[in-house]
């Protein structure tokens, strides 16, 4: 792992936002994602219940603390020390990189924007599907809605900007692309991402112990399935 480069910025009366990487939070990489996971764990271990919330994202970590137990100087000092080149963070933090395989049905009745993406990219629909499946994706952030994971980086050739006018209802399970991000809609909601398929697995199950199939930092791999398999796995058309 490369050297840590962290810029600490005020976010609110009781929040700091840490920007990672040489370009201070503007570039996405696996390395930066791992650094964020490490610093997040170190802060949790050090300050425990004095931390109210930690929100990791592509190249940043929002740290919200209890202002009656902690002040921002303590966190700034700790983070500055913890990321020094000689600090031994590897012994305290462990990187989890669970690989999660998610089935996707790419049929034309569910992949509403497949042909348009193919046309723009001067590829066939099959090539777009192949490119979407050809690689592993990292979970960079979870947000927007419960269970909504932002996965990246999508092959530049099939990266497609958001729709100019968002759809009022994107179906539950829709697999979609926006620029170099891909995601699965956990529930029906409005949305402007380009829809390429549908996943039969629930992304957010509050009644189960494991509420989501993945965490930030995990790896997701998409596996193409046919219509019959999609339906047998509980998928809804």
């Amino acid at each position: 792992m490369s050297q840590f480069n962290v810029k600490i910025t005020t976010a609110s009366e009781n929040s700091l936002i840490l920007y990672f990487g040489e370009s201070e939070g503007r570039v996405v990489s696996d390395d930066i994602s791992q650094q964020i996971q490490i610093v997040k764990q170190l802060i949790e271990l050090e300050f425990q219940t004095a931390i109210i919330e930690l929100i990791p994202s592509y190249a940043s970590l929002l740290v919200t603390f209890d202002p009656f137990l902690l002040d921002h100087f303590k966190i700034r000092h700790f983070v500055t020390q913890a990321v020094l080149p000689n600090a031994n963070h590897s012994s305290d933090a462990t990187l989890s990189e669970k690989v999660v395989e998610l089935p996707v049905y790419y049929g034309e009745e569910v992949g509403l924007d497949l042909s348009r993406i193919a046309e723009c990219a001067k590829l066939t629909v099959e090539q777009v599907i192949a490119k979407h499946q050809a690689q592993d994706y990292r979970v960079f952030a979870i947000g927007f809605a419960p269970g909504f994971g932002y996965l990246g980086q999508v092959d530049e050739q099939i990266a497609t900007p958001r729709l100019a006018t968002p759809r009022s209802a994107v179906p539950k399970g829709a697999v979609a692309i926006a620029d170099q991000q891909t995601a699965i809609y956990p529930a029906q909601s409005p949305g402007g991402w380009n829809i390429i398929g549908r996943c039969p697995i629930d992304m957010f199950t509050p009644e189960q112990q494991q509420v989501m199939p993945f965490d930030v930092g995990d790896i997701v791999r998409f596996k193409k399935i046919d219509k019959q398999t999609f339906i047998s796995m509980g998928g809804q058309l």
């Binding site: 976010a11 609110s12 009366e13 009781n14 929040s15 936002i17 939070g25 503007r26 996405v28 919330e53 929100i55 990791p56 994202s57 592509y58 190249a59 940043s60 970590l61 929002l62 919200t64 952030a141 979870i142 947000g143 927007f144 809605a145 932002y150």
Partner: peptide, 29 residues
Amino acid sequence: MLSEGIALGAVQIPPDGQPIILMHDRQTI
């Protein structure tokens, strides 16, 4: 800009320049 964590009360400035103050039920990023 890459999406990032949103603190309570954050004042967001979208392209039209009109501020939005993010309250308790805000999106997290």
